[in-house]
Design a binder for these strands. Structure first.
Lengths: 207, 207, 207, 207
DNA sequence: TATGAATGAGTATTCATTCAT
DNA sequence: TATGAATGAATACTCATTCAT
């Protein structure tokens, strides 16, 4: 969290196919390097080298390395969002209980499969580089969830208060984070997730 | 998360009063700078300058800035632990429900009051620098909680499974993190914490 | 003679004219500084400054000052070798006695004219930095000398044993070193070299 | 060979037994460190630590590390000189040929047995630190040799010119240096030394 | 546009030396 | 006298960024 404001926006948007490929190579290179080394050792020269483009080209499109990371995070979150959305909406006919268990399972799988990258993004990349892309997606995700919730509420006469809804999201986030990034011996993820789902479903029924 | 192993141990333990003061000044300076600027801009030269000691003195006791941060985290966690312990054990006559609500309130207050520093420590400082001191304290904290739980179980015939205990800790962590670091408008912390406490107490009663 | 292995190889070989000029400036600067100050006060920052390039450029091509010195020694030895080779082969019609006297004279002149630089290279630069370039040239020089010797042996029925050949080289080296680097008052180089030549020529004739 | 003059003399001469022991420990520590690491990594703090004295004590007696090295070299050369003198004078009844062969053998053994330390002293320690102690001993050694030579000349009617005497010393030095510090495969020291002795003895007889 | 050589401010780290105790 | 904590100038080396080609 550097004190001075850093420009996180791309200098120009690539239009031609070649430019698009260059920018994409830079972003993928950044992702690869974050995976391998974490945030702190990341350098623009490395990004250019691994991307197979010249350092000049990186600065042609990005004002600095922070902007590259921001673009990468934005792209990553969008891809996660798309994947989740497609998987969750294809099941929207299920009842809320099945949907909720499915949802939790999907999130767990996503975090588990992207463990190392998410560890770097959540725990090393400076806060300021994440806020922009995360905020832009948060609203959409919230809308999505609320729509599902509304559907269920109507259908099953549920009455989920905003506080309970909030609780559902924070506790789920906390549990997934714990299971993946700070696993405890003797604690089985499956059992915990099942127990979590039971509790959440019960809350929704207002027990 | 740098790939190569970094030495996190102090070179010397200060024995004389003068050297103890020097080391303490270095650690406090490090804390102040993390608060003000976050982890990435932290430099050993800044640490020395703010501590009012020479750069040579920093390297007299620490192999590098990572070790200074580690020492600071260790000291900080110990102070948090002591504070929590004294506050929680002074209430051990309360029943488990009161104790649990008290406990959650204490943790929230602690996180809230140390918001900025914890934000840096939890989300910017490389993982490897936190593991060592956190692990050393984790066992103690766990013992403390288990003792309280055991007392309560005996007294109130509770039967809290390990999975439920795990859930209690991850969901509490997730909720506190959410409330403090990603607050939502229209969501009141008090209400959410109250709701969380209700749920947790109910779990302990196995409802 | 530092204990840990130091990288003595260039990071990049300059290809463009501009970079070749940069590398050559660095090497010449290193040579100049060794001449003026000896090995120990040599710094990469000084090398860059005297070369008129930025410190970054030094590290663009060399991993450290040791590698710059090694490159300089390599270049220097090659230039000495070329000079000696051209001067000695142009006289290959002379008989062995004239050739030997000529050879010793050439070497003395070379050492004398490069006295200060050789003093630094032979007596201050850590051993490890000299071995690589010296070894690479040694074989060539030896071949050159052996060819001359072989020609002479055939022509004049000489029978120089390996031990005598070895002795010729070590005694010549010792005498040149003594005359140039630790001159004695009242001892005239010319007389000593003449005497040395007499002795060596006699050895070759097996007297 | 640093440009500015460095003070190489001891600040004070230790008088009491304890002070003498301190100074001796410092000198031995310096010797040990030179043996292990060579000249360049030598530091005053290391010297003090290995000697088991405080850094303050080093500066109590020496103006800097160069003076410690100079003192060490002086002591070492004196010990070599004493050893050689006692071994050579005990044989002064032998004839010059035996004496010369004995002398060369002694020197070879001395260099061989002190190979690593001499390598550091001859090829890494800056020239300026060696000149002072070496010059002080040179005269004595020369006197010693000249006395022996004079005795032999009278006894055996030899007529060794100063040039030949000089040649004897430089060629011996060159050969010993070559054999010990740059040994050649297939070249046996013994054979070379025997050959060298033969040649030198012949010179003395003016053949 | 793309390149990559060059830049140099910035950072980590060492180590000779001082000086209060 | 001895100690060793403290100093800070000096040095090695990195890396974001520029700009001539």
């Amino acid at each position: 969290m550097t004190t001075d404001k850093i420009d996180l926006e791309m200098k120009k948007v690539p239009r031609q196919a070649r430019s698009k490929a260059t920018v994409e190579a830079i972003i993928q290179s950044c992702k690869l390097l974050l995976l391998e080394q974490g945030y702190n050792p990341l350098t623009t020269n490395d990004i250019a080298r691994v991307a197979g483009v010249s350092i000049g080209s990186v600065y042609e499109y990005f004002p600095g390395k922070e902007a590259v990371v921001t673009a990468m995070v934005r792209e990553l979150i969008e891809s996660y969002f798309k994947k989740l959305k497609s998987e969750i909406t294809s099941k929207h006919n299920n009842n809320y209980e099945t949907a909720m268990r499915h949802w939790i399972g999907l999130l767990f799988k996503l975090v588990q499969e992207n463990k190392r990258l998410l560890q770097v993004l959540l725990f090393e990349v400076p806060y300021s580089l994440r806020i922009v892309p995360v905020d832009s997606i948060k609203a959409e995700l919230f809308t999505l969830v609320m729509q599902g919730a509304a559907r269920s509420q109507n259908q099953y006469k549920l009455n989920v208060t905003p506080e309970v809804l909030y609780l559902i999201s924070t506790t789920t986030a906390g549990t997934l984070t714990g299971l993946v990034f700070a696993p405890s011996p003797h604690i089985e993820s499956e059992k915990v997730l099942n127990e979590l789902s039971n509790k959440i479903v019960a809350w929704m029924r207002q027990e």
